[in-house]
């Protein structure tokens, strides 16, 4: 629907432009430091590729976990009502606003060797700290709320009308979910998944606190860049640019306009 443009006060453009500058200027600053001559060589070094591949693998697994856990969570939050639902919603969205390093400490004292579940995990022969599993766990922890928020929003704006119609025609709940609900909210689901993936890819604080840093096992791209910036700043800048490129792609896929049609 086309709305009539209401004029904005002219002064509002100044802080708005300032905000845009604040976001873009550091990127310009970083790009100005890129050594283009050796760029390709730097981003394709063995340890860079190891970190990149570890990051992509763990982020993909984390995104799948987010889908498996987050879709049911969003459905329960959007389509049911129970006492304390508001509280539950606030709590599961906590990782969204929590400093990641705090998340890392929380994970450590839960899944660590001396944590809440340490003995049980030990009895099962599972050791999570310092493993790739720890990386995935940290990434899932921080990125799950992104999927839940996107999908719950999509579910609420889509409404339950079609689902009610399908049910009244005799479709069973699982059929309704599969044939009506999912296709209806697919754009929201996709953008939520892409956002979760991006958040997982950028995860740093919880990972370094909980999982440690070892090449090929736990040293994901952000940790690699953190390590690299003191020994080889040129390579760190080059790898950072790779992550910026990924981030731009992610925004192109998941910009808000697409999720709401």
């Amino acid at each position: 629907m086309q709305q009539r443009q209401v004029g904005l006060p002219a002064w509002i453009f100044v802080p708005a432009a300032l905000g845009v500058t604040l976001v873009l200027l550091p990127l310009v600053g970083m790009v100005s430091r890129v050594e283009w001559g050796s760029f390709f060589e730097l981003v394709t070094s063995d340890s860079a590729l190891t970190a990149l591949s570890l990051s992509l693998r763990t982020s993909l697994v984390a995104t799948v976990l987010c889908l498996l856990l987050g879709v049911p969570m969003a459905l329960v939050l959007a389509r049911t009502s129970f006492r304390g639902q508001g509280l539950v919603r606030s709590l599961v969205l906590l990782p969204l606003v929590l400093p990641p390093v705090v998340g890392g400490i929380a994970l450590l004292y839960t899944f660590g060797r001396r944590g809440l579940l340490g003995d049980e995990l030990d009895a099962l022969g599972l050791q999570i700290a310092f493993s790739t599993t720890a990386v995935v766990l940290a990434q899932t922890f921080v990125s799950l709320p992104f999927l839940v928020v996107s999908l719950e929003g999509a579910l609420r704006s889509a409404g339950a009308r079609y689902e009610e119609v399908a049910a009244s025609l005799g479709a069973r709940p699982t059929t309704v979910f599969r044939r009506v609900t999912l296709p209806l909210v697919m754009p929201g689901l996709v953008s939520g998944a892409v956002l979760s993936f991006a958040r997982a890819l950028g995860e740093f604080g919880a990972t370094i606190t909980f999982a440690g840093s070892l090449e090929g096992t736990t040293r994901t791209l952000p940790l690699f860049i953190y390590n690299l910036r003191v020994v080889d700043p040129d390579a760190a800048v080059a790898m950072s640019l790779v992550l910026v490129a990924v981030a731009v792609l992610v925004i192109a896929f998941a910009r808000p306009g697409r999720s709401t049609w």
């Binding site: 310092f130 440690g212 070892l214």
Partner: peptide, 11 residues
């Protein structure tokens, strides 16, 4: 064969 290489001694 360390399980982690940290960025500072305090870590």
């Amino acid at each position: 064969k360390p399980v982690s290489e940290e960025q500072s001694v305090t870590d």
